[in-house]
Amino acid sequence: MSARRLRHAAAGLGETIRNRLPLARRTPPLASLIEGAARVGYGARGFVYLSAGALTLLAAVDLIGAAAGTGGAAGWLAEQPFGRVWLALLGLGLWAFVGWRLLQAVFDADHEGADLKGWATRAGQAASGVFYGLLAAGVFEYLDEVGEATSQAADRAESIAENQEKAALILGLPFGGLLLIAAGLVVLGVGAGNIVRAFRDDFEAALACPRAFCGTATALARIGYGARGFAYLPLGVFVVLAGLHARSGEVTTTAAALEALEAQPGGSWILGLTAAGLMAFGAFAFVEARWRRIRPPRDLKIA
């Protein structure tokens, strides 16, 4: 059976079920479900970055011990009342965002096209999906640790140790140092790409927001993407140095890399500005959750 006939058969089966089962008739169309999941996903991303930025800002003004990366939002959430419920909701929201990234990358939901620029954009969306998938898996790992007497410092030390263990495995491979350098360059490339997007992208084109608000939304996006890109740079430098020196102990996390940045002259100001930018990125994600143009593919075929 051809792919087209298979899709038509699946559509016919779905229509039959909707006609015969009262509950199925009340189920929203697939396109509406996809749009809703995507908006929930953008909201979950907004919460992660808004929380990470707020915690990092508190660290910059010495109100808490250390900066927090994207995983720090889950750690903070786990300590709140009904922590398991909030973590489960956040994890499900992030998985919804992963699903939307899959539709963007594989089925070209944003109509980026199949030229070089389109494929580059969709490759970035695929990489983003992998990142948020790992983040969502990490959120669910916290479910087993809710209520345990672990400090934020202990969680950060465990994350660093896990990253260093992975780096040691890479260094143990043939040309491991070069592989680790390449990984660091990828992180630097992601950071630089976000900074370029901050200056070049037309964020307003993807939004259906009120005209009077679009300027504010664009400003949030430019500040947020710039700060997000800058936050990746110290981590990329550490990974490259680990590959050059063949020492896995130099690999760290985003939060620890920002903390090292704070120790430099004027570091508290730089960290504070970066934190404010991450909060702007989170705020823009909430704007996307409300007003982004979501166009689910009518026909789920690989484009």
Rank of each mutant, 00 (worst) to 15 (best):
G53P: 01
E204F: 02
A3V: 11
A157N: 13
L6M: 12
A182D: 00
G124L: 10
Y232E: 06
L220R: 07
L87P: 08
A167D: 00
E204L: 07
A59I: 04
A9D: 15
W76K: 09
V287Q: 10
G14Q: 11
A68F: 00
P22E: 04
A120V: 10
A285T: 07
L241P: 00
A255Y: 00
W269S: 10
R84H: 09
A68I: 00
L178C: 00
A257V: 02
L271W: 02
L6E: 15
L102C: 10
W100T: 05
F203R: 09
E262H: 08
L30I: 12
A231L: 01
A280P: 01
A289C: 10
P81S: 08
G113Q: 09
A52P: 05
W100V: 04
P296F: 06
G53V: 02
K117I: 07
A208W: 02
A221S: 08
L178F: 06
L261G: 09
D144T: 10
L30A: 15
L241Y: 05
A255C: 01
L180C: 01
R247D: 15
A10M: 14
G113T: 08
G282I: 02
R295T: 14
F131C: 03
S248A: 15
F107S: 09
P22Y: 05
L179M: 14
Y232C: 06
L300A: 09
Y225H: 15
R4M: 13
G43T: 13
A136S: 13
W291A: 08
F82G: 13
A66K: 10
G172T: 05
Q125R: 12
R26C: 07
A231K: 02
V61G: 04
R292D: 04
G133F: 09
L23M: 12
I181N: 01
G46F: 04
L220Q: 09
V40A: 15
R26L: 14
F97S: 13
V106L: 15
G191E: 03
L180E: 00
A11S: 13
S2M: 05
G282V: 00
M279E: 08
N194V: 00
A120E: 15
V187G: 03
T70S: 09
L300P: 12
D155Q: 14
Y132V: 08
G129Y: 06
T252G: 00
F131A: 15
A137R: 11
Y132H: 15
L143G: 09
G243I: 03
H245L: 14
F203M: 02
Y232A: 02
L116R: 13
T218G: 13
L179V: 03
A285Q: 14
C214K: 08
L271H: 03
V196R: 14
V196C: 03
G267I: 00
L103N: 07
G65W: 07
T252W: 00
S159H: 09
G12F: 10
L173K: 13
E112M: 12
A136W: 03
I181F: 00
A3I: 10
G93H: 08
E79C: 06
R222K: 13
E141G: 15
G249D: 15
N194G: 14
G41I: 08
C209N: 07
A67V: 02
G118S: 09
A198F: 06
